[in-house]
Structure formats: C-alpha cells, structure tokens
Amino acid sequence: MKSTFKQIASKKSPQRISIALAILFAVAVTFWSTPTTYDVNAETETLRIRTDIAPIIWGLSEVIMYRDYNPQSEAFTGSFSPSSGTDVEVERITSGPLRLRCKNSNGSVGELRNQDGQQKLGGRVTFVIPNVDKRAKSGGTLLFPVSGDIELGQDLTYDASTTVAILQSGTVRVLGRSLLEPTLFEAGTYPLELGDDFRLEAALSPSVGVLVAGDHPGFRVAIRGTSKSATVTRFGSSGYVIRTSLFERLKNDAGLQILWVAALTFVGFARSFWKEKS
C-alpha cells in the first residue's frame, strides 16, 4: 500500500511541477514592470528642461539678451542652439514676455548664430521675448522644439509670491507597451490641475515635444516621454504616481492575453496527458 502511494505521488510530481512552472512564468511576466509612454498636453506658465545631445535650434527675432550675470541687455536676432546638459527654464506669467533662462555649470550654454556668424556663449544666458500677443496677431506665433529631461509646473509652497509661474491645466495620456510586439495600447488618461507639478521618474530616453506661445496666457506644450512611472505633485498633498496598471495590461495587452491563454491551455493539456498515463 505504501509503495503504491509513492508510485502515484512520483507520477504526479512532473505534472505538478510543469503546471506550477507554467503558472509562475505567466504571473512573473504579468507583474514585470514594462516601460510606459506618456503623452502630455498642457497649458502652463513654466517648463524646465535639461537638454540632451539632440540638435535643437531655436529661432529668435528681436529679443532682449542678457549674457552671464551682466545686467546690460543687448538686442539679438538670429538663432540659439543649446548645448547638451544645459538647464533651461521657460517662463511666461499670464500674458507677459516669454523668458528663456539657460545655464550650464559644466561649460557653454550653447551657440548663437546670425548674419555676423556664430558665437559660443558662456555658462549663462537669458532671452526675453516681448510683445508675444502682438507677434501672434501678426502671424508670428513662437514655436520651440524641446528634447531632454522635462518637468512641467513646479512644486508650490505656502509662501509663494504673487508672481510665481504655475501649470494651469492639462492631460496625461498613458500608453502601455505590448508584451509580444512594439505596439502601444491605451492605459488611461489623467488630468493635470492648477498648480500641479509633473515629471517622469528615471526616464528611459529623452522626452521630446514642442511649446507654442501666442495670444493665449502662458504657453502650450505637447510632450512625449517614456519611463516606468511618472509623478504628479499636488499642492497640499503627497500627489500620486501614474503608471500602466495591472488591470489595464490584462484588459488591453493582446500579447499578455495570448500568454495567459497559452499557459492555461498548457495546464489543461498537462492534466489530461498525465491523467491518461495514470
């Protein structure tokens, strides 16, 4: 009797192991953290960028320029190409001038180009673009491509001044990455509210986008970036994290659905196969 029980147990061990491995593999893949793409459209008064190696050229017409810490301004018309690793703060409060504050602690912030040639700048420069409304009415809307680590808005404090630049509103469209092929699926849309701060955590690649300033207050931005998660900091609270949820993956990822169908099919086949052998 005892030997018969051992024989039955030994026969069922391979079945149980194979079924357990199939289920464990499907579960592990399901909970594996995958990259998420974030499409952000927002109206804001402030945007911060740390530029990457992508070649960016910003056209500048009749702007006021301040070099380094020199309080003396000079007029400039031409183009500016920021260097990699330059921190750029873009700001326009309500319908005021658009300001581009650039600094690079490791070298030059970039190069100027105009009819007189090109010139390498020092570690800091500020461009002030006046009369944005008038430019827009005459067809001169300001458009700047952006690439790098991008942060929208800023974290507010209780002692904020009356001239602080803030994010006005926006939406974050979350796109999950499919398991079996390089396609994206819808994974939800989240609102950005007045005063929020949005940033990607440990971005997997530089974010890219465009900002447009015209006859509307502040400026508008459209940005796409890829990361494991994004964080929204909200005044008076700890904020929240945005990522592709498990429910959205199971609901919308065809590759993950195929994996689970295959795993459950294997379980059924294994049970029937070992049942026939026993």
Rank of each mutant, 00 (worst) to 15 (best):
M1F: 11
K2S: 11
T4F: 10
Q7G: 02
K11Q: 13
K11D: 14
S13F: 11
P14M: 06
Q15E: 13
R16I: 14
R16S: 11
I17V: 15
A20H: 05
A22V: 05
F25I: 01
A26P: 04
F31P: 02
T34L: 15
E43T: 14
T44I: 08
T46S: 08
T51E: 12
D52F: 01
I53T: 09
A54K: 10
P55V: 01
P55L: 03
L60F: 06
S61A: 07
E62M: 03
V63A: 07
I64K: 01
I64M: 02
Y69R: 09
Y69I: 00
P71N: 00
Q72Y: 02
S73K: 06
S73A: 13
S83G: 10
V90N: 04
V90T: 06
E91G: 08
E91S: 14
I93N: 00
P97Y: 02
N104C: 09
S105G: 05
G110A: 04
Q115G: 12
D116N: 10
Q118L: 02
Q119H: 08
Q119E: 13
L121M: 06
V128H: 04
I129Y: 11
P130D: 06
K134M: 10
G139M: 09
L142T: 07
L143W: 08
F144W: 12
F144T: 01
S147V: 00
D149T: 11
I150H: 08
I150S: 06
I150Q: 09
D155R: 13
Y158P: 02
D159M: 12
A160M: 07
S161Y: 02
T163Y: 00
V164Q: 07
L167I: 00
L167M: 12
G170I: 05
T171V: 07
G176F: 04
T183Y: 10
L184S: 08
E186C: 00
E193R: 04
G195T: 03
L200Q: 11
S207W: 08
V208C: 03
V208Q: 11
L211K: 00
G214T: 07
P217F: 07
P217Y: 04
G218I: 07
A222E: 14
I223T: 02
G225W: 09
S227T: 15
K228F: 15
R234K: 10
G236E: 13
G236F: 10
S237P: 03
S238F: 10
S238E: 15
R243T: 15
K251T: 15
L259V: 14
W260N: 01
W260C: 00
W260L: 02
T265N: 04
T265A: 08
V267H: 03
G268P: 04
A270I: 15
R271K: 00
F273P: 00
